Amino acid sequence: MAGPTTTERGTKRPAGVSSARPAGPGDPLPDGARRLRMPRPPRVLLLVAAALALVGGAVWTLYGSSWLRVEQVTVSGTRVLTPRQVEDAAAVPLGSPLASVDTDAIEDRLRRALPRIDSVDVVRSWPHAIGLEVTEREPVLVAEEGGKYIEVDAKGVRFATVDTAPREVPLLRLDTGRSPSLRRFGAERLRREAVGVVTGLPGRIARDVVSVRVRSYDSLTLELTGGRTVLWGSGEQGDAKTRALIALMKAAPKAGHFDVSAPSAPAASRS
């Protein structure tokens, strides 16, 4: 019997070797086989990348660009101080990014340099300004020292020295001498007591107060227009003493001296 032809011998494959050609990209996959694909980035990563880009752009706009920088300082609320005084003391860094301005530091500089300022709001006024909204202290008493006058506000703070006493502000006279009250309470506490008495008076009486004389913690005297005086005693029981004084003034309108140091037993006399 004749053996295989040359053609048949050339097409014979060793045992276990497939005679199929490699599958191409367009060829169908064998049963049960799955084509491998490159994974796509999850949507959350795309969202995070977009958010980071937005944040980076915002930070650059606020701090790196030339669009939102300090170009102007505005001042409001001044009465005795001038806007220029406030602006100079604030030392706002012109040209700096508005977002980076330290508003607390500006407030501290103003309080240290200008004690007349009671409070100040430092606000960013976008896109290019810093606003300084000032509230000045107002004197309720004035103390004479060395030919000048020291203004005292409603908190008992000595905040300014002036050459001329402000009009219609009572004079504070601390005539404690060697009183034990001065050693026990100190001038500041006695000053606050005097302030508390004056600020607690009704308007029609407060307008008549010329001076407040403090001899001790328990001895405050109000000197009124027309040479009238009011022995107030300590600063305690202020409401009761005020009611007693109003009643005395109505009952004895021509009296020159009123004593409300014991409000349950007030007295009035012509001298």
Rank of each mutant, 00 (worst) to 15 (best):
R178W: 05
A265H: 09
Q85K: 07
A247K: 08
D121F: 10
V197I: 15
A262C: 08
G200H: 04
V214E: 01
E223G: 02
R192D: 08
G226L: 05
L248N: 06
M38S: 11
A187N: 02
D118F: 08
P266C: 10
K241I: 05
E188I: 07
A160I: 00
R35E: 14
R84D: 15
A154H: 03
V70C: 02
L220P: 00
G32F: 07
A129D: 07
A105R: 14
V73R: 02
V55G: 09
D239H: 08
L45V: 11
D102W: 03
L62R: 01
S96C: 06
A265K: 11
L248S: 10
W60N: 11
D175T: 12
I205D: 04
P263Q: 02
P42R: 09
P22V: 14
A143D: 01
T199S: 08
V122Y: 00
D218E: 14
R228G: 12
I130T: 01
D31A: 14
L36D: 05
A105N: 09
D218H: 08
A252V: 13
P14T: 07
S211F: 03
T229F: 12
A113E: 11
S264E: 15
T242W: 02
V157E: 07
G26S: 13
R191E: 03
R109G: 13
A251Q: 15
A58G: 12
R184E: 13
L114K: 04
L47T: 11
L62E: 03
G131T: 04
G146D: 15
A240F: 09
A90V: 05
D27W: 05
R183L: 15
S271D: 10
R184S: 13
P22H: 13
G32A: 08
P139N: 07
E138V: 15
V86N: 00
V198N: 01
G203R: 11
E145W: 11
S234W: 05
L46R: 14
S234K: 04
F258R: 00
L220S: 02
A187C: 07
V86R: 00
Q85M: 12
T229A: 15
A251E: 15
A194H: 02
G196F: 02
